[in-house]
């Protein structure tokens, strides 16, 4: 895997730049934000962008939109990371075990994965929210659950191939315990493709979390979250379109950036792309 390939394509450079911007906004939101994202100032309600120091305008309660977008990056990143951890930490070991042992265990697990993946993500998320009620951890569960299936399937298909390689056979012949072989010898071979999937899953997680929040089933106001900001802004769309356009732009750009980075990573680890380019 060579990182130079990542920097060779313009789109992955763009993706990396957007991701860094997004990460920077999330990490340094309190330093970067010109105002407190919660402070209301009804006198400045619905102020247009650029007016009296409100760079991206003010919302219906006079809160600074830019500050709320910067803090919103934190919320999105936080949900995305937690959902991914949930999905990857459960899914990868499941897939590893499934691919390593094979047999009926593998069949049962893969049927479960098939079923889980045949339900649209947003629908599954809605069922979970309907069951456990709206809340932060429900959102993490709702967003991360399909990732278990995605990572299980990926880890399984990769470890199926790796298990047949000589060095794994050698480790077995030397009397290594199964768990040790799986985590010491098979798992490292999965790192590349899993990194690629992590980026794509991150983009999907942020998108789904934003959509649920827009529908009122995710993060609730007054927490600055892009989806819920847009839902509130919709009521004032005619007089203050900036309440909808900017948070949406932030959401769309970060998803796009992460996807581009994922594409770049995929090309960097897949030798077929090197040949073709």
């Amino acid at each position: 895997m060579s990182l130079s390939i990542l920097l060779r394509s313009k789109s992955s450079v763009l993706g990396t730049a957007i991701c860094l911007l997004f990460l920077g906004a999330a990490l340094f939101a309190p330093l970067l934000a010109p105002r407190n994202p919660y402070t209301q100032d009804l006198g400045s309600s619905l102020r247009p962008p650029g007016h009296r120091g409100y760079l991206l305008g003010a919302d219906q309660l006079g809160r600074d939109v830019l500050s709320r977008i910067l803090h919103g990056a934190r919320v999105s990143l936080c949900i995305g990371c937690l959902a991914l951890m949930f999905g990857a930490f459960l899914g990868i070991p499941m897939g590893l075990v499934s691919g390593y042992y094979g047999g009926w265990l593998d069949s049962v697990m893969m049927r479960m994965v098939d079923v889980l993946l045949s339900i649209p993500r947003i629908l599954l998320a809605i069922v979970i929210v309907a069951t456990y009620g709206v809340g932060f951890w429900t959102l993490v569960l709702a967003v991360g659950l399909p990732d278990i299936a995605i990572f299980a399937r990926l880890a399984r298909s990769l470890s199926l191939k790796l298990v047949q390689l000589d060095y794994v056979a050698a480790a077995k012949a030397m009397g290594g315990r199964d768990a040790r072989i799986m985590f010491r010898h098979v798992l490292p071979g999965l790192v590349g493709p899993i990194a690629v999937q992590l980026t794509f899953s991150m983009a999907a997680a942020i998108l789904i979390a934003g959509s649920l929040s827009y529908l009122g089933l995710g993060i609730r106001p007054p927490t600055p979250e892009w989806g819920s900001m847009m839902a509130q802004g919709r009521l004032h769309m005619r007089s203050a379109p900036h309440l909808v356009t900017y948070p949406g732009l932030a959401l769309g750009m970060s998803v796009l950036g992460i996807n581009l980075l994922g594409d770049g990573l995929r090309q960097a680890i897949d030798p077929r792309f090197v040949r073709r380019n």
Partner: peptide, 16 residues
């Protein structure tokens, strides 16, 4: 690429 990244609800609101 943009079409796969753009949030549906944002696209909807922009069209409206």
């Amino acid at each position: 690429v943009a079409g796969m990244s753009v949030p549906l609800f944002w696209l909807a609101l922009l069209l409206i």
